[in-house]
């Protein structure tokens, strides 16, 4: 979903840079306040893992492929959407400047889609699904897995829809066909990459290393972890 240079007119690129400034600022303030000796290495490892896994394109039908974004995974593990925004901002900067993946003028729109939108959508939909009490579901790991899967799926699908609208505003994609194709491709990528990997990682951590979850106030996650 990395928008290259040239797809969006410069003045619109500038608007996206302006939109992300407050979010990146709030994320840095969050990091200053919340991060400690224990969380920093986890964030470092998550960033490295997100960079590596984004290089792994998984084939989907129609001669297309796609990779995980990872913002939802980071936000769920650390317990804040700001973690996802910060890590994706840094990963996208490295990808854009060092590897030519995603444009430099399009850095703002890419951070907006894959950092801001993906983190907020993924984290809060995960929390919402996690807080629904489902009586017959006694195995809380199943509940955790479903919440992480759906949260992660939405965290790639919704940014893809936003991206289609942005490219329509840029005059690059027609609206309806753009929405359809971007939606269908990323709905599939959301299942085979984002949803599957995020759910697996979150449940694995909950099972073996629940101390990694940073969101101590999140009782739903605590319950899942202690069960």
């Amino acid at each position: 979903m990395h928008v290259p240079d040239g797809f969006i007119p410069l003045w619109q690129c500038a608007v996206y840079f302006l939109i992300i400034i407050p979010f990146v600022y709030l994320s840095l303030r969050w990091a200053e306040k919340e991060l400690d000796e224990r969380k920093i290495p986890i964030l470092g490892v998550l960033a490295a893992a997100i960079f590596a896994i984004q290089a792994l394109n998984i084939p989907i039908p129609w001669g297309t492929s796609g990779h995980m974004v990872g913002a939802a995974m980071a936000a769920i593990i650390i317990g804040s959407p700001y973690a996802g925004i910060l890590l994706l901002t840094l990963v996208l900067i490295v990808q854009g400047f060092v590897f030519g993946d995603g444009g430099i003028t399009a850095l703002g729109v890419n951070i907006f889609n894959m950092g801001v939108i993906s983190s907020f959508v993924g984290y809060y939909s995960f929390k919402a699904i996690k807080s629904i009490k489902i009586k017959p579901m006694k195995d809380s790991n199943t509940h955790l897995m479903i919440a992480a899967f759906i949260g992660a799926w939405l965290a790639i699908f919704i940014p893809a829809i936003a991206c289609a609208v942005e490219l329509w505003l840029a005059g690059t994609f027609p609206l309806i066909q753009g929405l359809l194709l971007m939606g269908i491709y990323h709905a599939v990528i959301g299942i085979v990459a984002e949803g599957f990997i995020t759910a697996t990682v979150v449940v694995t951590i909950a099972t073996y290393r629940s101390d990694i979850f940073s969101d101590k106030k999140d009782r739903t996650l605590d319950q899942a972890v202690s069960a």
């Binding site: 797809f7 394109n57 297309t64 289609a164 690059t172 994609f173």
Partner: peptide, 19 residues
């Protein structure tokens, strides 16, 4: 392991002359 196929955005762009 990675697929060489274009990603979702590139595939979509290939379908449109405007892109």
């Amino acid at each position: 392991l990675a697929s060489d196929n274009p990603d979702g955005l590139e595939s979509t762009a290939e379908d449109f002359e405007s892109a």
